[in-house]
């Protein structure tokens, strides 16, 4: 793997990581909280809660 290709691949990975972190941060702004990171309500509980929401 040439050094030039390695540089390109590394920069693509950096761009992907940045985009993912930005997207995650924006999603948290819409629905703030710990996102399950710290033992908050799990996605299963949230899904079940949504099911019983009044129509």
């Amino acid at each position: 793997m040439s050094p030039q290709f390695q540089t390109l691949a590394a920069l693509v990975l950096v761009a992907l990581a940045t985009a993912w972190l930005v997207r995650r941060s924006l999603a948290k702004r819409k629905n703030p909280g710990c996102g399950g990171d710290c033992g908050c309500a799990s996605s299963e509980v949230k899904a079940a809660a949504a099911k019983i929401a009044r129509p």
Partner: peptide, 10 residues
């Protein structure tokens, strides 16, 4: 197992 370069360092 990799040549020196940015990807290896990353």
């Amino acid at each position: 197992h990799m040549m020196a370069g940015d990807l290896r360092d990353l």
